[in-house]
């Protein structure tokens, strides 16, 4: 076990370039579970905890910047995020217990790329932009495009997540909701996670809608087919039902140790329906 402990961003990127197989360590709430299970023996660790700047949350002209090392607890209690991005606050509140919220970071959570990441559907409906940085490059990727599969991202060798940018929508949505369905009331791994925002215009016509689900596919899914069908149509029972029929095109739930494919599909459908119907 070798631990690299960079003091600042430049140092970190240089070390990572030289040690592309190193495991970046943020809050450790996922990585340390692997270590405890003996799965990281003899690996190299890049400990990012010295990068103090990366844990900042700040307001920007367009919205909010959340440093990769900001913890779920810091995000959950930040006044600007509480005011403008309530879905993210709700999702951070459901991550583990207080101990995990105090330690786990947003950047670490994204890099870990669990299909059950609780914050991802919220980030997806806010169309969050993930900023990455390497020794010789900077990139920006939409949240739902950074994931390549179960526990896999499109991050390149030597590339780290620097922060997440959220842009305040021009008009506040008419309706929004976050709902996690887990294995129990708290400290649970999700079976399905829903986040949605809806903008209704005149005569209940859908001006815009953003829906996302987690835990029902290898990565978080924006429900593009369902969204497209709804947009521009009057929101009535018939429209909702026909939109819901498109859901299987957007998600691919599976049977696993925690739940079943059927349940995930049905509850996802129910969650979207009850959100759209305003119940």
């Amino acid at each position: 076990m070798k631990v690299l402990t960079p003091r600042d961003e430049r140092d970190a990127l240089r070390l990572y370039r030289r040690n592309p197989d190193a495991f970046p360590l943020a809050g450790g709430t996922d990585l340390m579970v692997l270590w405890n299970a003996g799965l990281l023996n003899k690996k190299t660790i890049l400990d990012l905890s010295g990068l103090r700047d990366w844990s900042r949350i700040r307001e920007t002209p367009k919205g909010v910047w959340i440093g990769a090392l900001a913890t779920h607890a810091e995000i959950r209690t930040h006044p600007a995020i509480r005011e403008r991005f309530p879905l993210l606050v709700d999702s951070c509140r459901t991550v583990g217990g207080r101990q995990i919220q105090n330690r786990g970071t947003l950047g670490g959570n994204i890099a870990n790329a669990s299909p059950a990441g609780d914050t991802f559907p919220a980030l997806a409906v806010y169309a969050a932009l993930v900023h990455t940085v390497s020794d010789n490059d900077r990139r920006v990727m939409p949240i739902d495009e950074i994931f390549a599969g179960v526990k896999k991202t499109h991050l390149k060798a030597g590339e780290l997540i620097e922060g997440v940018e959220l842009q305040t929508p021009p008009n506040p949505p008419s309706r929004w909701r976050f709902r996690k369905v887990g294995t129990r009331a708290a400290q649970a791994i999700s079976k399905t996670v829903f986040a949605g925002q809806l903008w209704l215009g005149k005569d209940k016509v859908v001006d815009d809608v953003k829906l996302a689900l987690g835990s029902v596919a290898p990565t978080v899914k924006r429900l593009r087919h369902v969204e497209t069908h709804l947009t521009g149509r009057a929101l009535d029972g018939k429209t909702i039902e026909s939109a819901l029929r498109l859901l299987p095109g957007d998600i691919h739930p599976i049977d696993d140790i925690r739940s079943t494919r059927e349940y995930r599909l049905q509850v996802s459908r129910n969650l979207i329906r009850s959100f759209l119907m305003g119940r």
Binding site: V3, T29, M32, V33, R98, Q99, I100, N102
Partner: peptide
């Protein structure tokens, strides 16, 4: 694995799981 909280201590006043902290 950070599930039971029996190892909770405070770091700078905040509860954390000490089994998950190098």
């Amino acid at each position: 694995e950070g599930e039971c909280g029996a190892c909770s201590v405070l770091i700078d006043g905040k509860p954390v799981n000490s089994c998950l902290i190098p």
